[in-house]
Design a protein around this nucleic acid. Structure first.
Length: 469
RNA sequence: CGGGGCGUAGCGCAGCUUGGUUAGCGCGCCUGGUUUGGGACCAGGAGGUCCCGGGUUCGAAUCCCGGCGCCCCGACCA
């Protein structure tokens, strides 16, 4: 392991550590306009992997991708009361174009319920057209006062799914399915990110939704981050955009719609959930580079051996990259550590004499000495072990830092270091206000058995409260 | 928008209080060489509207006035 960290240690200044990682792992840069973000190749590679994994699951759920415009008529936003109210402060509005002032201002989409609703109304005629299951990968703009790379940027990238159904039950079931089979499955099995699945209290709900499901992850500083959300919009948008269908009985009925999204914020979550003082730690199944083969020296025999090891790894299905660059060995090792590449294979002349190489796991620094031909045999298993260990480690941290408490005061104390879980009936609206003074919010509501309730009004619910990003 | 801080090389900063040669340091960058098993070293080098505009002065990064920009902390959010 590194003798000395290049980064600000997490326990010294966590936000600073985060910024250091983003910069030194070459993930992203600030854009020229405040709040905008330039995603660099390595950060983009990670986002692409997230996209690929989530997109496959979205399609598996029967959803089709489509694309709707960036520009939305302002009037669309004004059709759904809560939606307008919720989004107005964050809108970027185009008033001039083509050298003239526009007759109607155009909103740069902060989300697409409204445009998509308009077209759903056009496309849905009969119950035979339902469910209509759409998704788009896009950028959206929500003007931010305090931006942070990946976590809060005025422009960010995401997928937004939008569906229309014939009944409340269908809509609820589908939103839940997406939450569990797309988001939670991805989070657990790819991102190695355990979360609390639950619903948002009314105060935290999406503007215009009747119910918002969330997956709340814990960052290494004990703060919460919403990793993904799934909303039931009831008939609110259907009513505002006339999304009707003719039932089997021949009646005109309003649809029930849903929307659900996961954004580049997830990259921030990845960094803060798994990263350590040496930098990023990327779960193997997500990692764009799963193994780096480092030539200790830039010598022909060493490079040749690197090439062979890399080829064998590739043949074994490992995403691999060779580092035969010049420059000091230590520097290159540190750089790959900061980038969080799961496995590091070191090939040097000393090893080659014995026909072996060193293999080091990023997460626990365990070092193995393996025969040249052994690497590709062992690597896949090691990657899977690391994947499992990361999930187990993150789960332990989440569990250990979640404190069951009896009242608001205890919750406030617990939220200094992690999450607090308490009876929702002991919080309520007044309790939320008391928590808010300490910048603590109700992250989600759960049943006693940690499953997701259908609504806030269910009896016997717990709430999880924490400070959050 | 309320409170605090900062604008000097690509990045991080010193210099300013007490005006005075050619504006400096660390990292990074370039060239050459020695190196290379945990952020290497030596030598040489490039790089500056000292945020902008005015003022005071023989002389301003430094003092005065005005402006702009950025960062941090509070009210919203994926």
């Amino acid at each position: 392991m590194a003798t000395q960290s290049v980064l600000t240690p997490q326990n010294e200044d966590f936000p600073r550590w985060y910024q250091d990682v983003v910069a030194k792992a070459e993930m992203a840069d600030n854009g020229p306009v405040r709040g905008t973000m330039v995603i660099r190749p390595y950060g983009w590679a990670i986002w692409e992997r997230m996209q690929a994994e989530m997109d496959a699951r979205i399609k598996e759920a029967g959803v089709q991708n489509a694309y709707f415009p960036l520009f939305i008529p302002l009037s669309y936003f004004q059709r759904e009361a809560e939606h307008v109210e919720g989004f107005s402060p964050e809108l970027a509005i185009v008033t001039h174009a083509g050298g003239e002032e526009l007759a109607e201002p155009i909103v740069v989409r902060p989300t697409s319920e409204t445009v998509i609703g308009e077209y759903m109304a056009k496309w849905i005629q009969s119950y035979r057209d339902l469910p209509l299951l759409l998704n788009q990968w896009s950028n959206v703009v929500r003007w931010e006062l305090r931006p942070r790379l990946f976590l809060r940027s005025s422009e960010f990238l995401w997928q937004e799914g939008h569906t229309a159904h014939a009944s409340y039950e269908d809509a609820n079931a589908f939103a839940t399915k997406i939450h569990l089979e797309v988001y939670n499955d991805f989070l657990v099995n790819v991102l190695a990110a355990p979360t609390y699945l639950g619903i948002k209290p009314a105060s935290e709900r999406f503007a215009g939704a009747i119910n918002s499901m969330t997956a709340e992850g814990m960052m290494r500083d004990g703060k919460a981050l919403q990793m993904a959300t799934s909303h039931e919009l009831g008939q609110n948008f259907a009513r505002a955009f006339d999304i009707y269908f003719q039932s089997e009985a021949g009646q005109a009925e309003l649809c029930f719609t849903t929307s659900w999204g996961a954004s580049t914020r997830m990259v921030g979550g990845l960094i803060m959930m798994h990263g350590d003082d040496q930098g990023l730690v990327v779960p193997p199944r997500l990692a764009p580079i799963q193994a780096v083969v480092i030539a200790v020296r830039d010598e022909p025999e060493v490079n040749e051996a690197c090439g062979r090891v890399a080829a064998s790894l590739k043949a074994a299905g490992v995403r691999v990259q060779i580092d035969r660059g010049r420059g000091s060995f230590g520097r290159r090792v540190t750089d790959w550590e900061i980038k969080g590449v799961p496995l590091r294979v070191e090939v040097g002349p000393r090893d080659l004499k014995d026909g072996v190489v060193s293999l080091v796991r990023r997460d626990n620094a365990e070092k193995l000495t393996l025969g040249l031909d052994e690497v590709s045999v062992k690597a896949p298993g090691l990657l899977e072990e690391m994947q499992a260990d990361l999930l187990a480690g993150a789960t332990t941290r989440l569990t250990d830092a979640t404190h069951d408490v009896e009242n608001i005061d205890e919750a406030i104390e617990a939220a200094e270091t992690g999450f607090a879980r308490l009876d929702w009936s002991k919080v309520g609206v007044s309790g939320e206000a008391a928590l808010k003074v300490h910048a603590i919010t109700v992250r989600c509501l759960q049943r006693r058995d940690a499953t997701m309730p259908l609504a806030e009004t269910e009896p016997d619910l717990d709430c999880i409260v924490a400070k959050s990003y």
